[in-house]
Simulated assay, not measured.
Amino acid sequence: MTAATLPNGNSALPLLDSDVLRTFVAIAECGSFTRAARQVFRTPSALSMQIKRLEETLGQALFVREARQVRLTPEGEILLGYGRRLLRLNEEAVTQFLSPSLEGRIGFGTTDDVGTRILPGVLGQFARSHPAVQVDVVVGSSREMLARLDAGDLDLVLVTAGNPGQEVRGEIVHSEALVWAGREGGIAAQRSPLPVALAHHGCAWRGMALDALDHAGMSYRIAYTCEHCAGHEAAMLADLAVSPFPLSLIRPPLRRIDASLLPPLGDYQLELVKRPGAGQASEALVGYVMDAFRKT
């Protein structure tokens, strides 16, 4: 832990060491000094000493130590956000000078639910690290994105896995619960037949929802059809229908429907597919996308 010095020679605030921050973040994400030690290739006692010095420097307890795990204190949760950002900035700065210069264009296709989840952060970080690479983003259905990849129009696509007739061609990068959602205080979930908002034929969410309703013997009607999440949100906000929706994307005034009212839907997955021979720039963007999902 070093300290900055003011022009008049007086000691200023201490500077957080990147190595100590990396240790702190590893422990927070692993929930264990032992598991974090394996990740950073040090002994648990060495990590413990680093954290003790960090806590003394900041004058705050950062972890609550329990029998088989550790958890963050409120102050530790605040530092975790700063630590991740500082490490990310450090990586970007080093990459800017030491990584091979990348140039060119990437065609990146994705579904709109992914775009609202990770794209702003991923594209912003990638642009800062590789300013000479142009990324053109296309948003559409999974089927359309894969077709454009095969035609050579796109280099990289992030799509929903498990659509009818769609084999797994890439790497599964994310799995999440698909749940029923509707408007807070709305009555659509109590109507019979149940009004549902769905995408067009060939969508995995549509198939999961209809299979669940059929197996439960529930009466339903497709009240609203749209390819995009924004359309489903509009139907739910108007209390015209309920819809299958990723749990992480539900925001007030929408809410998750009580699990006792409608049948469970299970998990859905996102698949990252690369065009063969897409090039180094695409490979670099793959790393940023996968890193973003690891942190969600």
Rank of each mutant, 00 (worst) to 15 (best):
G124C: 11
G124A: 12
Q125A: 11
F126N: 04
R128F: 05
R128P: 06
S129K: 07
S129G: 13
H130V: 05
A132P: 00
V135A: 09
D136L: 10
D136P: 05
V137F: 03
V138A: 14
V139H: 05
L149Y: 03
D150Y: 10
A151C: 05
G152I: 01
D153S: 13
D155K: 05
D155C: 05
L158I: 06
V159P: 07
T160L: 13
A161M: 07
G162L: 01
G165N: 10
G165I: 09
G165C: 12
R169G: 12
G170S: 09
G170Y: 00
E171W: 01
I172V: 15
V173N: 10
V173G: 10
H174V: 02
S175P: 01
L178W: 00
A181F: 01
R183I: 12
R183M: 10
G185Y: 00
P193I: 07
P195R: 01
P195M: 01
P195S: 08
V196Y: 09
V196E: 04
A197L: 00
A199N: 11
H200K: 13
H201D: 14
G202H: 05
C203E: 08
R206N: 07
G207V: 14
A212S: 04
A212G: 02
D214G: 07
A216M: 02
I222T: 13
I222H: 03
A223R: 00
Y224T: 01
C226D: 15
E227M: 13
E227F: 02
H228R: 12
C229L: 14
C229G: 14
H232G: 09
D239V: 11
L240N: 08
L240P: 04
A241Q: 10
S243K: 07
S243I: 05
P244Y: 02
P246W: 09
L247Y: 10
L247R: 15
R251S: 10
R251G: 03
P252T: 12
P252A: 14
P253N: 08
P253R: 11
R256V: 13
R256D: 05
A259W: 07
